[in-house]
Design a protein around this nucleic acid. Structure first.
Length: 292
DNA sequence: ATACCTCCCTGTGTGC
DNA sequence: TGCACACAGGGAGGTA
């Protein structure tokens, strides 16, 4: 499942293939893939034709391709991969993937760009850019409300720690709240909490400053480590732009390890249901708080 | 306002 | 063998 490291791997992969190239035509094969583009699939495809793509950018789990100025307002193609979205580049003549949703052809006749998405939680849209509330130039309007992610310069560590400790919720819910910190999903939330030795239900307003800083640092470290090896391909639905899996699954300490021994203390890892999904933790290293 | 719940999707794996 | 169902989960949108 693509979270920050996986999306960053895709961004880097795309950069070498699409930057500076001009889209000749775009084709929407499944309208759900552009459901958030309110003007519709025809408008989306039509307005992409003839536009030149600048270097891909990312914030949290969102990726966007800025489009070169065409006299109108600054625009970008915004992408969210959801659970199973893939952005792939390759020979335009190759076979169509079963879950191909959107395809862009370039005017040089070279590699095309495809959006493939089995579970259709991902989406693409063409959107205007607005000034970044965190001062990093322009960002796509629909994501101007999300926080910076912990791997970008615009991330304000002190502001995050303060907001986290003021919030009245559980630490994991806070880590997954994209308006507080972006880019962290279920896998890296569990991994960061394991590293910081904190239980997911720990009230965020009970965290000491040191604990809050510790879980943030853990999130940074684990996402950085995952990025360095191409991300986590837990269920093989995440691949880079060339269709290759990442290698971080073997380094996961908590996520998906139900019943397997904690590599710190040997206690079997617990799986609990939380927010209609799974939370994995070590019952010895990560003590459940008394009040929940 | 904040906190938290439901719903949208489809392929895979498991149990009967 | 085939069917039913649990499971994976980000974020929009709703309720209290």
């Amino acid at each position: 499942m693509p979270e920050l490291p996986e999306v960053e791997v895709v961004r880097r992969g795309l950069a070498g293939w699409v930057t500076g190239r001009t889209i000749a035509a775009a084709e929407v094969l499944h309208p759900r893939a552009v459901r958030r583009h309110v003007a519709g699939a025809g408008d989306f495809a039509g307005r992409l034709a003839g536009r030149t793509v600048a270097a891909p950018r990312r914030r949290g789990k969102y990726l966007w391709l800025p489009l070169a100025e065409d006299g109108g307002p600054a625009e970008a193609v915004l992408a969210h991969l959801g659970m199973s979205g893939q952005l792939l580049v390759g020979d335009p003549g190759r076979e169509r993937e079963k879950h191909l949703r959107v395809r862009a052809l370039f005017d040089d006749g070279g590699h095309d760009l495809r959006f493939v998405d089995q579970r259709t939680f991902g989406h693409l849209m063409l959107t205007e850019m607005v000034p970044d509330p965190f001062g990093a130039g322009l960002v796509p309007a629909p994501i101007s409300h999300i926080a910076a992610d912990p791997l970008e310069d615009a991330f304000d560590e002190e502001a995050f720690i303060g907001a986290l400790r003021r919030k009245r919720t559980g630490i994991k819910r806070a880590l997954l709240d994209q308006s507080l910190i972006s880019g962290v999903g279920n896998i890296y939330a569990d991994e960061a909490l394991w590293r910081a030795r904190l239980h997911w239900a720990r009230p965020s307003d009970s965290l000491t400053r040191a604990e809050a800083a510790r879980v943030l640092e853990a999130a940074r470290e684990v996402m950085g480590a995952a990025l360095a090896v191409g991300g986590t391909s837990f269920d093989s639905l995440y691949v880079n732009v060339n269709g290759e899996s990442g290698y971080f699954e073997r380094s996961l300490e908590a996520y998906g390890r139900r019943g397997e021994p904690c590599r710190r203390c040997g206690t079997p890892i617990h799986r609990e249901e939380f927010m209609n999904r799974s939370s994995y933790s070590c019952p010895t290293c990560q003590k459940r708080p008394r009040r929940v």
